[in-house]
Amino acid sequence: LRLEVKLGQGCFGEVWMGTWNGTTRVAIKTLKPGTMSPEAFLQEAQVMKKLRHEKLVQLYAVVSEEPIYIVTEYMSKGSLLDFLKGETGKYLRLPQLVDMAAQIASGMAYVERMNYVHRDLRAANILVGENLVCKVADFGLARLIEDNEYTARQGAKFPIKWTAPEAALYGRFTIKSDVWSFGILLTELTTKGRVPYPGMVNREVLDQVERGYRMPCPPECPESLHDLMCQCWRKEPEERPTFEYLQAFL
């Protein structure tokens, strides 16, 4: 395994491009020591290896001592969030954005069929390849993070704006909380990567959403798509659509 080009840095580690087995181009995620327990990670990795779908980033291998390494397929255009905010983002029109959403829903419909939960679905965790191919990455890892700023769910590192209220408040993460996050991801797509709930801080978002506030229809977004977002944001988790439905609708 060779680490060649550093692609990015996040709160919990770095991402590199490299070569595996001398020939395969891969992405390598390294986790800061202390982010998660190697034992817990190894268990999760076994499950992650079983998830194989064309719209999920394929896991190739893991190094399960500290520092933990995760070796996955390489996606040339990086994260969907950076892609939307970058040069190419300007030229993306609604049909392409909807197609990308459908690809993500397709990957998540598979996660749904496998009775698995992602827990951290957002544009930053979707990767883009050639020809606007989108794949879901980092599934299941969020559960293992041991950082206090994260586990408190009120901490600075927790993605509260993407998280369903029952998950943020009571830790009830299910495929239905993933559906909520998918609704937020749809706003990221239609606004080219704007942060959700602009002008609001995490605490406010939690309070307002509890009181029934939902983001309005983004500019140039059809009402039918906003309606779909609002279905994803129904207060009762069981009233939210399935990913199978979302995939078919898109």
Rank of each mutant, 00 (worst) to 15 (best):
G140I: 00
Y170V: 08
M48N: 05
T23A: 09
A124V: 08
F173M: 02
G107R: 00
E188G: 02
Q9P: 02
V98I: 11
P33W: 14
K135H: 14
T190D: 04
K32Q: 06
E239P: 14
Q208K: 11
L81I: 12
I70E: 02
Q231F: 14
S76Q: 14
N115P: 10
G10K: 00
N202W: 01
E54F: 12
A152K: 03
V136F: 00
G78W: 04
V136Q: 02
T19F: 11
P159H: 00
E54N: 11
R211P: 04
G13V: 00
K49F: 02
F83G: 06
E238T: 10
F139R: 03
W162H: 04
E236H: 13
I160P: 03
A164C: 14
Y60R: 15
G10V: 02
T88K: 11
P237G: 12
P219D: 09
N21V: 13
R211I: 12
E14V: 15
V63P: 04
K161G: 00
R240D: 03
R122C: 02
T35H: 11
D138H: 00
P38H: 14
L7F: 15
G212N: 08
V5P: 15
L144M: 12
H118A: 01
E44A: 01
R113P: 03
F41E: 02
M114Y: 05
L250M: 14
C11S: 05
G78E: 04
Y116Q: 02
L169Q: 07
A142I: 00
W20G: 13
H226L: 05
G140T: 00
Q154L: 09
T30R: 11
F12C: 02
Y150L: 02
V47N: 04
P218E: 10
E244F: 10
A102Q: 13
M114K: 11
L169R: 04
R203Q: 11
S177V: 04
V201L: 08
W233H: 06
A61W: 15
K55G: 09
F182C: 07
W20F: 10
L121S: 04
K135M: 07
V179F: 01
V57R: 15
W180S: 00
V15L: 01
C232S: 11
F173R: 00
D82L: 07
Y60E: 13
W233G: 07
Y150F: 01
K77I: 12
G171F: 12
M200A: 07
G78K: 10
C230G: 10
R153E: 07
W16P: 00
L186I: 10
Q208G: 10
M17Y: 14
E66D: 14
Y60C: 11
E66R: 15
L141R: 02
P241E: 09
I184M: 05
Q247I: 15
A102S: 10
Y213V: 06
E244N: 13
Y150C: 01
G107S: 05
E39M: 10
L141V: 00
L144P: 14
V201G: 15
H226S: 11
E210I: 09
G212T: 04
P198Y: 13
S76L: 15
